[in-house]
């Protein structure tokens, strides 16, 4: 297997002086292509912080971060934006979708924003992904009217839209009931198996974590297991 992501000696400090909080304290982690990894750890341990840095939405205070051989610590905002668009998908816990757009419009956003318009090809892929997520009936539904579980499945479809190598999911099932959570996880597992997309999923739920082949536990700002 190929190495996809590598972080080394990651430090993240919020604030400065007396109020400084050191959240990550020299964390190192590698993700291989095709892995499906659960990220565990107590609340406040820095899981979201780590995902945000891996997603290039935030830079570490110090440490190395490489993905696909690219040094992402050195890259500027423009380069990171383009990199993110092509190589990383996100599923968040809240605030996932653009409420004034339909399910399909949300799914094809990552492609449309890159190409400057919504192409027929993008729409076709969006429909296919939504159908795969069991949302064939909700393709042109205003996303604000979808249920929580449906929204998360639209978010997963969108995360996959540009065929990224890595999908980062921060408590994607945290808001869902058991049945919906399992459905979302099954779909993620399926994509991981069929397309070899690498997933890193933070969760507090041991059952959810158990669905992943690898578990990483964060504590005290480093990987503890």
């Amino acid at each position: 297997m190929n190495m996809l992501v590598e972080v080394e000696g990651l430090v993240k400090t919020f604030g400065s002086g007396e109020a400084a909080t050191r959240v990550l304290r020299g964390l190192s982690l590698t993700l291989q292509t095709g892995e499906m990894t659960a990220l565990l750890g107590p609340s406040g341990s820095g899981k979201s912080t780590l995902l945000t840095i891996l997603g290039t939405l935030m830079k570490p205070t110090s440490g190395n971060h490489r993905m696909l051989g690219v040094d992402l610590v050195a890259a500027d905002d423009r380069a990171l934006t383009a990199f993110r668009n092509l190589h990383i998908g996100f599923v968040f816990q809240f605030h996932n979708l653009l409420p004034d757009f339909t399910a399909l419009e949300n799914v094809i956003f990552p492609t449309a924003v890159r190409e400057g318009r919504e192409t027929a090809a993008a729409r076709a892929r969006g429909r296919e992904l939504l159908t795969r997520m069991g949302l064939a009936e909700r393709i042109d539904f205003p996303s604000a009217n979808l249920s929580g579980g449906q929204k998360q499945r639209v978010a997963v479809a969108r995360a996959l839209m540009n065929r990224p190598e890595l999908v980062l999911a921060d408590e994607p099932t945290g808001n869902l009931d058991r049945a919906s959570a399992m459905q979302v996880m099954e779909l993620i597992g399926e994509i991981n198996r069929d397309e070899g997309t690498t997933f890193l999923i933070s969760t507090h739920d041991e059952k959810i974590a158990g669905l992943c082949r690898r578990q990483v536990v964060v504590g005290d700002g480093v990987v503890t297991g």
Partner: peptide, 16 residues
């Protein structure tokens, strides 16, 4: 703000 954040995370540049 949240939507702008989502768009930026999905690869929308500042110019967009």
């Amino acid at each position: 703000r949240p939507e702008i954040g989502i768009m930026r995370a999905m690869g929308a540049g500042r110019g967009f």
